[in-house]
């Protein structure tokens, strides 16, 4: 289709604007991460787009090395929050995927009606804030405050509906004949699930797990409410990077933000490949 030059111009202008809006903060963060203190500090009179004297000091700083410019010392380094984020996000994803997949399979194959599947999603009907106060009380009662496992548990619960609905859709679309073919050969139901269904569903499983992982990894609110000191996650830790002397430590925040953005970006690209490819069941040609 041939479009008019005016339309093409408008189209590219719109795309450029959208990209500027979305990419500018990222560019700013990347640039900031490599700037020495005078270039990012609130007192600095010379803010620049591109670092004039690029440095890795901000990265060294968050990992606890002393740096020449920044005289403040950190109470805690970024190692522990990174560990906390990894543990809570990975185990939260595991909980959500194992329970969600099992529930989705059961309801897809043996369930009837829509009420049960819909009931599982009602956790998402409210903003997380609405349920967080009771959750805080429960977690305090169970001694789960400020633990990575407490965080992993709530992450698993919060993202379970996502895992469930994604997997249920995939299971619904999977041709049952593949399972029946194995059942006819005398395979047990459970073995069919483990040896046939799950391997056939590798791609959907991977993409759902990655999506859930990114949700958990990006959480700020829940971690802010349920952790205090030992097991704060990257986003919570990042927010705490400030001092009375220097104010907000923008350079350190940017460096940490850049590091924290790496897993979701990589995983996001991986998901995209799976999602674009979609569900290609080679056996099903109709």
């Amino acid at each position: 289709m041939r479009r008019s030059p005016a339309f093409e111009t408008f189209r590219y202008a719109a795309i450029a604007l959208a990209l500027a809006l979305t990419l500018l903060p990222i560019l700013w963060m990347v640039s900031m991460a490599f700037k020495p203190i005078p270039e990012w500090s609130a007192t600095g009179a010379d803010l620049t787009w591109i670092p004039r004297a690029p440095t890795l000091d901000n990265f060294r700083f968050v990992f606890g090395e002393s740096t020449s410019d920044l005289i403040v010392a950190l109470e805690r380094t970024a190692w522990r929050p990174i560990l906390s984020s990894l543990l809570s996000a990975v185990f939260g994803t595991l909980i959500a995927m194992v329970c969600g997949t099992a529930a989705a399979y059961g309801l897809s194959r043996f369930g009837s009606g829509k009420n049960l599947p819909l009931a599982l999603i009602q956790l998402r009907l409210f903003p997380p804030m609405a349920v967080m106060i009771p959750v805080m009380i429960m977690w305090a009662f169970l001694g789960l405050i400020d633990t990575w496992w407490g965080l992993a548990l709530i992450y698993g619960i919060v993202t379970l509906p996502f895992a469930f609905w994604l997997m249920k859709t995939f299971f619904d679309e999977m041709p049952r004949e593949i399972e029946e073919a194995a059942l006819v050969e005398g395979c047990s139901r459970f073995r069919v699930f483990m040896k046939i269904t799950l391997p056939v569903m590798r791609a959907p499983l991977a993409s759902s797990a990655l999506l859930v992982f990114i949700l958990n990894w990006s959480d700020y609110l829940i971690a802010l409410l349920l952790t205090t000191k030992n097991w704060v996650t990257i986003p919570v830790y990042m927010a705490s990077l400030s001092s009375s002397m220097t104010g907000q430590l923008y350079g350190a925040k940017a460096a940490l933000g850049l590091l924290a953005a790496i897993p979701p970006v990589i995983l996001g690209i991986a998901i995209q490949k799976h999602l674009v490819r979609g569900l290609t069941f080679g056996a099903l040609k109709q």
């Binding site: 041709p175 593949i178 073919a181 194995a182 046939i196 069941f281 080679g282 109709q286």
Partner: peptide
């Protein structure tokens, strides 16, 4: 049993 869509273990 041979299925219409073959149901091959892909």
């Amino acid at each position: 049993f041979v299925f219409q869509n073959y149901a091959i273990f892909t």
